[in-house]
Write a protein that binds this DNA or RNA. Structure first.
Length: 500
DNA sequence: ACGCTAAAAC
């Protein structure tokens, strides 16, 4: 039994002795995920006669010097749009549903834009009361409806509306609105236009936010460009706002969400050299990056340094520590840490148990997983879908499908909805034990339960079927996917149908 | 005045 004694109030770092045992990190987590890559070189919003810049060769210096986008040339006017007049008197108290309908009408008007129809004029005639909410909804509509056919036209229309809205009385675009139109551009691969928007924001003195940074950095396919963007934001005086103590933390945190671990190291280095004091958030982000890069010695050094600087670990620090202890197959140290947490008033939550169990299952210690799972329930902590999924995935990986099935059933009984991750693990488990028919039924069940399979789920099933020499069944699954019209652009990854 | 703010798969 793992049951351990109460933890003495020791320094967290001591739990890691001997630290050598913690080595070994997933190769998959240490790999940098490539950015969204180069997008098509769109000419939309480009000035007449302006040389088209190739994003692959353009330097940030050039981009940063770009002038703000000029207003689009006005369309020939024609007044044959019989806009139904909306009373703007009660406009300020418009219900969200009404605004949604209004959004559709605005889009309809914008879509008619072209020679012989001026969307601007039609918008004027609609007597709209322009609010942040309205602009948000119109932009959002564009973001979600972009596809390969309209990706050249939509940014034009979205920008046309954006400019028109910005000219209305008693309305001013704020940072969010710029972020939204930037997001439309991002979806359409209009990278240069995004950079020009950034310039415009700076020129009119509008602060940039972490969201602005996030949208922009996702379009930087090259590491050099990403670093330039980071530098720009670090220097920017208009990037310094509330929820984060410093703009460094906002940058670090964003980089964590997009898995740019090496860039985190770089920013941290800069931060230290420039004499900025890291806080708990800084340490948490950098330590996580170090762990994911497999640099456990540096991870421990930072943990020590954090304590020496008088910073107290918070729930996120403990979360990470528990995961690392689990991954290093140190259930006893983890138990001590859980007790210690309770002692210092940071009561472990599902999140903590889930992370610990996830680590332990990666280490292959299913017995310890089960122990902490039961312990969690005993403490009155209800496992959620993620926690169940982590347990199920662990059992599937350990080829103990019966246990996985029991947890899956238990999950349903307790009203926790399985999600794509859960189904994916279950389907993989069924394939491993050779129950291919059941795996296929589960795929179909997903849809019935309102859970749309993603490409990974299809991929799991198709690959497992093929590995078992069941090519015709694999083709059947591909047909099922094709029939539903899903992931057709990824179809080539299956290498087409295979002859049986 | 920002955006909904650190958990999971091959």
């Amino acid at each position: 039994m793992i049951r351990g004694a109460r933890a003495p109030p020791l320094r967290v770092a001591r739990l890691f002795l001997p630290s050598r045992r913690l080595c070994g990190v997933d190769s998959r987590t240490g790999v940098e995920v490539p950015g969204t890559g180069q997008q098509d070189d769109g000419r939309i919003l480009e000035r007449e006669g302006e040389a088209s810049l190739d994003p692959a060769t353009v330097t940030p210096e050039v981009l940063l010097r770009m002038p703000p986008p000029p207003p689009l040339p006005g369309q020939p006017e024609s007044g044959d749009y019989d806009a139904e007049n909306l009373s703007s008197g009660s406009g300020s108290r418009r219900r969200p549903r009404e605004e949604l309908r209004l959004t559709d009408r605005i889009l309809k008007v914008l879509l008619q834009d072209g020679p012989g129809f001026s969307a601007r004029k039609a918008l004027d005639e609609m007597n709209l009361k322009v609010t942040n909410e309205l602009v948000r909804q119109v932009m959002f509509k564009f973001v979600v409806s972009v596809d390969s056919v309209n990706r050249e036209r939509y940014p034009r229309l979205a920008y046309k509306f954006f400019v028109w809205a910005g000219q209305q009385e008693r309305y001013r675009h704020n940072t969010s609105m710029y972020n939204l139109v930037m997001k439309v551009f991002a979806e359409c691969g209009e990278v240069k236009a995004m950079w020009r928007l950034l310039e415009e924001m700076t020129e009119i003195g509008l602060p940039v936010s972490a969201r602005t940074f996030h949208i922009l950095i996702c379009t930087c396919g090259q590491a050099g460009l990403r670093r330039r963007l980071v530098e720009r934001f670090m220097k920017s005086s208009s990037f310094n706002y509330r929820p984060f103590r410093s703009s460094f933390n906002a940058i670090l945190h964003t980089l964590l969400t997009i898995k740019q671990y090496s860039l985190i190291e770089w920013v941290h280095q800069k931060m230290v050299t420039e004499g900025h004091t890291p806080d708990v958030l800084t340490y948490n982000v950098v330590m996580r990056a170090k762990y994911l890069l497999g640099k456990l010695d540096q991870f421990h050094r930072l943990l020590d340094e954090m304590g020496k600087n008088g910073l107290t670990p918070d729930l996120h620090t403990y979360n990470l520590l528990l995961h690392v202890l689990g991954k290093g197959d140190k259930p006893l140290a983890a138990l001590n840490l859980l007790n210690y947490m309770s002692d210092v008033g940071c009561v472990p939550s599902v999140l903590h148990f889930t992370n610990l169990i996830d680590g332990l299952s990666r280490a292959g210690n299913l017995e310890a997983c089960r122990y902490f799972f039961d312990e969690m329930v005993k403490k009155g902590c209800e496992p959620d879908a993620v926690c169940y999924t982590v347990m199920i995935t662990g059992y599937v990986a350990a080829a103990e499908f019966e246990e996985a099935q029991k947890l899956f059933d238990d999950m349903l009984v307790r009203g926790k909805l399985p999600n794509v991750y859960t189904y994916n693990s279950m389907i993989r488990g069924l394939c491993i034990v050779g129950e291919f028919d059941k795996a296929y039924s589960m795929l179909k069940d997903m849809d019935l339960h309102g859970c749309t399979p993603n490409f990974s789920v299809y991929s799991t099933l198709v690959c497992r079927l093929r590995n078992a020499g069941k090519d015709s069944e694999a083709n059947h699954v591909i047909k099922y996917m094709t029939k539903k019209g899903q992931y057709l652009h990824l179809l080539s990854r299956f290498g087409g149908y295979r002859r049986c």
